[in-house]
Design a protein around this nucleic acid. Sequence first.
DNA 1: GGATGAGTGTTAACTAGTTGACACATGGGC
DNA 2: GCCCATGTGTCAACTAGTTAACACTCATCC
Lengths: 157, 157
Amino acid sequence: MSEPRLTFTLHRIVAVLDRHADGILRNAMDMTYSQFLFLVHLAEADGASGATLADRLGVSRAAVSKRIPWFEQHGFVTTSEDPNHGAIRRIHLTRQGADRLAKASTLLETAFRIPADQSMSFDVNELHEHLLELLASLEASLPNTQRGSPATPRKDD
Amino acid sequence: MSEPRLTFTLHRIVAVLDRHADGILRNAMDMTYSQFLFLVHLAEADGASGATLADRLGVSRAAVSKRIPWFEQHGFVTTSEDPNHGAIRRIHLTRQGADRLAKASTLLETAFRIPADQSMSFDVNELHEHLLELLASLEASLPNTQRGSPATPRKDD
DNA sequence: GGATGAGTGTTAACTAGTTGACACATGGGC
DNA sequence: GCCCATGTGTCAACTAGTTAACACTCATCC
């Protein structure tokens, strides 16, 4: 009962961050945090296939496949066939999508920089370095932690 | 684009931890991490109402209400009426539920203590202290972050 | 004592994710 | 050339969460 606390603290921080980020994006530009993440990862891998985007987002291929029509209809994303491989659809961020992402990014940055950097008794960058080290250690020592193949669900009955 | 990285690192750590914890519990005792969390929070507030348990778990009252029958059927939980307030159902952990929780706890503790404590270039306890400070700062400076009332969903269409 | 307001638990309708299956495309062995 | 193994995208069925609405219990206030 003494050791899982760190895990719980991490969960609570993430929950608070998500909730707040979501609220900001909704209020300011009628956008979901989930949509923001989609655009962020696509921007970092523009022209990616659905499979690699799913991998980056940590969700299944099916989840990405189902969301793409919405982004296309709203003009944030276009898809094209891969000239070298007919089974692959390349996903591209449009100018409009990039603009929306940029606006959301600055919104979140300013919102979170103020409370976090101010008046902390320690170095936030150092904290981040330690967390990255922890993450690397976890990924190294815990077997088969590949993204895109999360644990299989098990119903409560 | 430079600042949200800490957020992303936190998300990745939590995802890795969850996935691995879930796998351990499934393999060893056919249990879900979500079920584990339910028992943990109930143990910390035995006899709680569904509303306070939902609050602790960070989910809605409806979610708790729907899960209780499963835990009752498996003998991990019993419910009783509150003698002072007819609208409240008190939820209690059974002996069997406590045993299951204890087994799962030690399982996870030993699994996570090894990779985390070993060969870190910094003090894990100090890291935890800093994270708690960060959490407190976030909860203080970000408005209305009460649990149990998460952001309203917004569909992708 | 009766209206009222707040808190609790449950239900229906919905959302966003999952797994598993499938059809299809590609690249290598043989 | 053919077969096979692998990777991709999509569909159906399902899961676990959500909100909104409801009935209900209680305390309070007049």
